[in-house]
Design a protein around this nucleic acid. Structure first.
Lengths: 141, 141
DNA sequence: AGGATATCGTTGCAATCGCAACGATGTCAA
DNA sequence: TTGACATCGTTGCGATTGCAACGATATCCT
């Protein structure tokens, strides 16, 4: 049989890295704000754009649209996000951060950046890692 | 507000890479052999070692032991894996591939390697990517 | 105009997941 | 020996996930 080492296999390594970094970071904000990874992604995306539809987040943040929908519902219930129907297209729902939501994102973003910085520092350097990851991502388009 | 781009954020990029590569590869064997990612990991690990306990797979393959247990149960039902109690320690269950299981792994491994090769080739080179991923993994220990 | 078709967001449901608790077995110490 | 404790693998159960179908709205074509 061809010899094969699972822990040298690229998809396995990536899954490992993803689950560890994602969990490590999520632990930093879940306790403080009670939001999930999906909800974090939505508010992070909303912090870039003033007002966006569910569909846009679904496409740009690579989430299922039902994930966005459910995340938005929870975020609205928690007072972080406001939902209103698009005045021009009744099918669309426009999402935007509330003041409370903006405050939360304003707290999380520095945590995110410092988490990332520390990770890259511990891996030595960082620019080279970013470059290689980008190449991989492009290869998967 | 501090500006922040989700698609430049390391944990997000890694999650993206992991889900795409994992899904892309899984599509290649799920249709043919009807096994899940967890089951693939178990058989891949079994292909390296003659006979191992559930606990060993759980530790080395970074899976919850209940995942290993359930995956092993399904694999046994499908005839890919044999389970028997350890003769020296009645608590342990020793897992091993059957002939059918070895045949399956023998088919999947070349697929895995060629999938990985193509991915790295499309990302240009590959050695540098592997090195950077290893550094990241070490940084997360 | 109006019916067929497409798109958007939501929801019902089944499968999967992780945690915690369990029974079974083994170990250790008194 | 025997009782307390540890470890192994499994399972029950609640939470999360993804898919597919749905109602509502918009667009297109005749």
């Amino acid at each position: 049989m061809t010899e094969f080492r699972l822990d040298e296999f690229l998809p396995y390594q990536l899954a490992e890295l993803a689950s560890r970094t994602s969990r490590g970071f999520a632990d930093l904000y879940r306790k403080k704000f009670g939001i999930s990874v999906a909800e974090w992604r939505v508010v992070a995306h909303l912090s870039q754009s003033e007002e966006v539809s569910v569909r846009e987040v679904h496409e740009r943040a690579q989430m299922g649209k039902w994930q966005v929908s459910r995340a938005a519902a929870r975020l609205e219930a928690a007072g972080y996000v406001r939902k209103r129907p698009d005045p021009e297209d009744g099918r669309l729902v426009r999402l935007a951060l509330t003041g409370k939501g903006r405050a939360m994102v304003g707290e999380i973003i520095p945590i995110a950046l410092s988490y990332e910085r520390e990770l890259l520092a511990r891996a030595g350097g960082g620019d080279e890692i970013r470059k290689q990851l980008r190449k991989l991502l492009e290869a998967l388009e």
